[in-house]
Design a protein around this nucleic acid. Structure first.
Lengths: 136, 136
DNA sequence: CTAGATTTGTACGTATGTATT
DNA sequence: CAATACATACGTACAAATCTA
């Protein structure tokens, strides 16, 4: 699979799709590097903008994490703990605000679960560490 | 509140924080325009990159939606329908993949709820249209 | 420990395409 | 048709964090 600069689909979308496939196929396992910006630029003959936008897309999908000076690696999702939803509770999923995300130390592309108990109390849980359950 | 280009916090983060505050304070109600890129560039004396990165941040938080030729407006969240979590079900929240997002016509910054029933069947729900409930 | 190379982050510029008004 | 507005994509430059020799 390669990239066609004359396609109607943007170059950065093509690169994002390509990398996403490789990740979901297990070709790029969790923790492995996806290549530096310079490498990807040269490998596909595209500009830095396109590379950065592709990586940004994958970051916002929670597929990779990026660190300055180190590069981007396929994200390793933390183990999920089961949280039982108590009777009378309601839940909504949403993205955290910037300050919220920094405070909870969430990676980009990780939603939160807002659980409202029957007493009206609200609890905000990291969406990548939790699996909600209703016991049988 | 204004923007300081010499601050250690990046200009685009400052602008995103500023606009987020105005949105959450109700100063910019749902449906209202946040101003064009050119307007924001001139108003704060910053470059187009900084403006676009700030808006991109808010988009990925689900706070605004952007349309080509029209501009960015504060996002109006659709009404949530209550979905009862059946006994024995489990739920995780995650971001949709690019193809998934396009197929479900989800705005940027909107997570999905992946509900696994006791029979093993999986259902993916739009995170902005659903409120999960466990009846009392 | 230091110096340099690598890598991403921020910020600017230009140009062109596409959708809406 | 023209003006406006965002999208894509290229370029440059410098800063900051990390890694390596």
């Amino acid at each position: 699979m390669t990239i066609d600069p004359r396609s109607h689909t943007p170059v950065y979308v093509q690169l994002a799709d390509l990398l996403r496939e490789r990740i979901e196929a297990g070709d790029l396992p969790a923790g492995s590097a996806i290549g530096s910006e310079t490498q990807l630029m040269q490998e596909y003959g595209i500009g830095r903008d396109a590379v950065r936008m592709a990586i940004s897309t994958l970051r916002s999908e929670g597929l990779v994490t990026t660190n300055r000076g180190r590069g981007s690696v396929v994200r390793e999702a933390p183990p999920r703990r089961r949280v039982e939803l108590v009777p009378g509770a309601t839940v909504v999923a949403r993205m955290p605000s910037g300050t919220e995300r920094r405070a909870m130390q969430l990676d980009e592309g990780v939603p939160v679960l807002e659980v409202r108990g029957p007493d009206g109390g609200v609890e905000v849980l990291p969406g990548d560490e939790v699996e909600l359950t209703r016991p049988a």
